[in-house]
Structure formats: C-alpha cells, structure tokens
Design a protein around this nucleic acid. Structure first.
Lengths: 336, 336
DNA sequence: CTGTTAGCGCGTTCAT
DNA sequence: ATGAACGCGCTAACAG
C-alpha cells in the first residue's frame, strides 16, 4: 500500500497533475477555474490526499522551514521569543513555516555545524538567538544562501537584520536606580561577554556608574554561564570585596536567583544585606517570597519584529531591512 | 551562482555520481575502494559540498527527522525530556535525526493538524508528549505511515510503544506521606483529566486515601490547565470546604506555586496553614524560600527509553516493543 | 484556463 | 569496485 500521490489523484479526477498542483496551492489557485478548483479540493480532502513536502521542497529549492538557533531550551525568555515569533508568523504566512529548533548551549563550533544542517535542509531562513562574536563568519556565509535574522543577541561589527532589546539602556536603568537609592558601592555579575547582550548590559551599567560617581567593586565578576549555579558561585567574590558593595546587578534572573540562594545559605537577607536587580522579568522573579526587581524584556516587540523580518526577507532578497532595538523597562520590586 | 551538487563534484573528480553517493554515505561506504573514498571525502570537504537533504528525503521516502508534539514549550519537564532524548539519539544515530517540534497547547484538533504536517514532511517517527484520550484515532492512523511513540502521557485503551512515569505510584506516595504525617482531611488540585498523567496521579492518591481512611474534601478540584494561574484560582475552593483540608496535593509544581502565591496573598503560610506537595521536582520547587515537597520525575529514564524506542522502531517495523513505566520518588522538603 | 514536458538532486538498482 | 540509467513526487516553463 503506497501513499496517494498527485498522479493517482489526477487519474481519479480526469485532470492533469499540474492542475491539481495549482488548485491546491495558495498563490496559483486563481489560475484554475473555480468549479474545477473546488472539485479538486473536495476530492483531495475526501481521499485524504497529503502532498509530499519533501518532493515540493526539492522542486522549489525551499522547504518552508525556518532554522532557529537557541542557546538554551530551558531559558524562558528565549522560548517565549520563539513561540511568540511563530505564533505571529502562523497568522500571516501560508503555507506555514515549520520551525527547526536547535540548541547551541553556547558551545563554540555548534553554530557552524547546525547552520550546515539547516542549509542542507534548504530552510527558507535562519534565525539565531544564540549568536556570539565568533559566529559572524559562519552566519555571513550562510546569508548567501538564506536570509539570516538575529534576535536578542547582536554581533558587534557585523550587520544583520536584527530584532533586539536595548540592553545598554537596560543596564543603565539599573545603575540609575541604584544611584537614586543612594548606593555608593555596587557590583555587577556579568554573563559571558561573548554574548552581546551581556556586554551591552555591562556597558550601560558602567557608564552610568561613572557619570554618577559610584564605585563598581569588584570590577569584573564574570559568570562562565548565565545560570543560577554560576550565580551561587559568584557571591563569594562579592563578599570578599573591600569596600563591600551594597547592591548587585545580575545580568539575568537566573544569576540573581543563584545569588539569592547562596545568600540564604549564609543567612544573609536581601535587600537588607545586599540589594539585587536581575534581568528578563521571568516568571520566577515574581514568585519569590521577596520578589525580584528586574528589567522587563520586550518579548512581544522583539518577537514580532523578528517575525516581520523573516516574513519580508523570504522570497524578497531586495527588501530593505530595518533592524530595530526595543527599550526595556525597569520593574522595581522588594529586592532593591 | 548555484549550489555545488553531486554532478559537479563528480565531474571535478572524474568519477560517477553514484560513487560519490556511496562514498559519503555511512552504510555503503564499504563498497567504495578505500583510496577513492578518501579522495572523495577530502574533496567534498575542501569544496564545501553539502548534500541536499530535500533530494535525499524524496529519494529515500524518509527525511531523517522526528516530529515531536509537546503541550507547552514553557514547561521545564517536557523540554528536559525532549533535549535529553535527542542528546541520547545524537550519540547513536547516524545520520542524526532533526527534531521538528510543535506545540499543541492541549487544544483539541491541534494534534490532527500537526501530525498531518509531520507525515507530509515524511518524518521517520513521531513522538507525542501531548497525547490525550481524543488523540487515539489520529495517532493510530499515523502509525500506519511512521512509528509513533508516546512519552510522559499514555492513552488509556490504546497500545502504543511508550516511555512513561508511574504516575499512579507517584500519587500514592503523596497520599501515603500525608497519612504518615497524620493528616485526616486532604485534597488534590487536579490537572485536566484528558491527560493520562493527571488521571493516574489522582487515582493513585485517592486509592491510598481510601485505604488509610483519609477524607478527600472537596473531592474534585479541577484546574482547566496545569498552570500557576489555575492554581491561584483553586485556593478559594479549598478554603471553602468543610471540614477544611490540612494538606493539598497539586498535580504539578506550577499548580502548587499558584496555590502558594494565593496563600501568600491572603496572609496564609505553608505548611502551617496548609501542607503542600507538588509534582515534577522542577527547578522552582528547590528555590522557594520554603522549598516545595514534590515527586521527582524520572526524566533521564523516560527520555532514554523514548529515545531507544525511536531508534529501534525506525527502519525496523517488526521490532518487538517494550513499553516501560519508571517509578518516581517523593522528595520531602519544608512544605509538608 | 488546462495539458505537456522537463527536471530539481539524490539513492538505488542492474550491469559490467 | 565503478558506471549507466531510472525515478522518487512535485512545480515551473511553455504551449495552446
């Protein structure tokens, strides 16, 4: 028993295969007489005909898929951007785009390999939420074969169509907040600077500290990855500094949470012993017994714009792209 | 500028296309002379040749992809199972299987549509973590074209190769724990019973309550979905019951968290005013100021077995399948 | 508006 | 061990 294909369906209906192809397509359906078209669609449905998309992909050179690179599938913010973007696309692209999602875990070399796979599958576009400085070449090469869109993380010195958050402004807001509350010695626990997000957050924060005459001590506390485990390990460095900081900016909520856990372990309390602000406004920040101040990530805007970039760039190589950066907002809660 | 294909590569090397195909494949490489094979592989790499997988898929009738249905991309447990399963598969399947991930949001009808898409793309297998009672027919039909594996959620009355958690035992553990702590009146906040997971957890819990002579009051508190928002809404029902329960079993950690938030809002404390146990042992349960007792989900075992089922069923239709169910374990923390 | 023809790039015969 | 030839199922180009 073999699958029903166009040839058989055409035989049943007494028309040519190409007429079927046209009648079932979205953009060429108007070339078929209304009556024939309905007859074909009716019979296709009744017979349970499903087009073979691997054949269509080969013929068209495009598979109606979008390759998505994400650093970490467990990260709420990335996932929210992906799902919001595809929800957006589903509503306005026919036939729908199937996501191919792959996780890089920020391992160098992962991007190269995964991009190859995407291109082999003839994706219509690639969206990277995982780009780091070292990915520029790979993505530039990829862009010769399929549109490449960056979301969340930019690549400094490279110009790709992008949908971003103004992380620098976000970092600045946190420093301003600390200054306004009278903190004189502060600190940041930075995520890996290979990701532009963290670099910009650090930059915005430090700039305002300088302007407002606040000391950043100790200066460079880097977490090897932006997780709560790394946050836990960072606390020791903060407490060893002299003078000791009275407030800390964690580059995301997971890092903040790690710091909080480590403090609890030592019997310290926030904000009394140390004020804390995170980044992303994840669900978690709202449900802590002492809720976390954090920077709200503009998920909706970033996702929508990323979706629009993908939509416009597909089959539209000359599209003049507007990269955009959306401003986040500080949410002050009890932790600061 | 067109992509480099086998024909061109063959011309460059002075061999036939089919020799290239064999040399680059995993299973037929031995048919090519070692020297020729290396020469071909060398040149393919140097020239940056990437096979067109849409063409290969059409020819083979399989795309080396696996369709994955998941109820909610934001749910840590589902995501962990997916990533663990593919990490497992990546290490032992060549060429690697690309996941096609689709979210059902537990909307009826979503499964039918998404399964069609998967089959149109000629997936090698379908893994559903999202199955509900009403999906049985769709999946049974799908199974005629590609192996279907169930993970996490079974379908009662249908027999698919499955990798599950013994949810009934998990529910029973919670009830036993409550009984041992001397609770006489308890309650459960149930997830939607269309998902077998919740039905089994409820069943295991109720059975033990009956055996140990504990009252379940009010009897059926159902959340329309297993999220913290639904948990929040459930608290009122618990507090209105008479006699009032002293302990509650939430069918997952998100529900438990909602209950906790609602309690905090009312100035109630746990476990003093109400003991709480969740399910899944998500990250969240560990980081609450008063950590949550919960049932640890056997993610590793379930994922590994799901991966093995997929691996064995692909290209092996006669494989005798061993569905398995793994026992979870209760983790008692401060909330109970 | 519909049919005819060709070919996308590969993997698999079958022959040598 | 290699080459020749075919066809997977579809869509595009061209004709009428």
């Amino acid at each position: 028993m073999t699958r029903l294909n166009m040839r058989e369906l055409a035989r049943k209906l007494g028309v040519d295969r190409s007429t079927i192809s046209r009648a079932l397509s979205e953009d060429k359906a108007h070339l078929v007489a209304a009556e024939t078209r309905e007859r074909i669609r009716e019979e296709a449905r009744a017979a349970g005909y499903r087009p073979d998309l691997t054949a269509a992909s080969l013929r068209r050179g495009r598979s109606h898929t979008v390759g998505v690179l994400v650093p970490d599938l467990g990260n709420e913010t990335f996932i929210n951007v992906i799902r919001t973007m595809f929800r957006h696309l589903d509503q306005r692209v026919v036939p729908p785009l199937t996501p191919l999602i792959a996780e890089t875990l920020d391992q160098s070399g992962a991007t190269r390999h995964l991009v190859q796979t995407f291109l082999s599958r003839r994706v219509d576009a690639i969206v990277s939420l995982a780009s780091t400085e070292t990915d520029a070449d790979v993505l530039r090469d990829a862009a010769k074969e399929a549109p490449v869109v960056l979301a969340i993380r930019a690549i400094s010195g490279a110009s790709f169509p992008s949908a971003l958050c103004d992380d620098r402004a976000g970092g600045a807001m946190v420093a301003t907040h600390f200054a306004d509350r009278g903190h004189k010695v502060v600190c940041q626990v930075q995520g890996p600077p290979m990701a532009a997000t963290f670099k910009q957050r650090a930059r915005g924060f430090s700039e305002v500290c300088r302007d407002r005459g606040i000391a950043e001590i100790p200066h460079g506390v880097f977490a090897d990855n932006a997780t709560s485990a790394a946050g836990k390990r960072a606390l020791d460095a903060l407490l060893a500094a002299s003078p000791r900081p009275t407030a800390v900016f964690a580059h995301n909520d997971a890092l903040a949470l790690g710091i909080i856990e480590a403090m609890r372990h030592r019997g310290l309390r926030y904000p009394a012993d140390l004020a804390i602000v995170g980044f992303n406004n994840t669900h978690l920040s709202r449900v802590l017994a002492v809720p976390l101040s954090t920077v709200d990530y503009p998920v909706e805007e970033v996702s929508r714009h990323a979706g629009e970039l993908v939509r416009n760039l597909i089959g539209n190589p000359g599209y003049t792209v507007e990269s955009r950066s959306f401003t986040p907002s500080l949410i002050v809660r009890a932790s600061s």
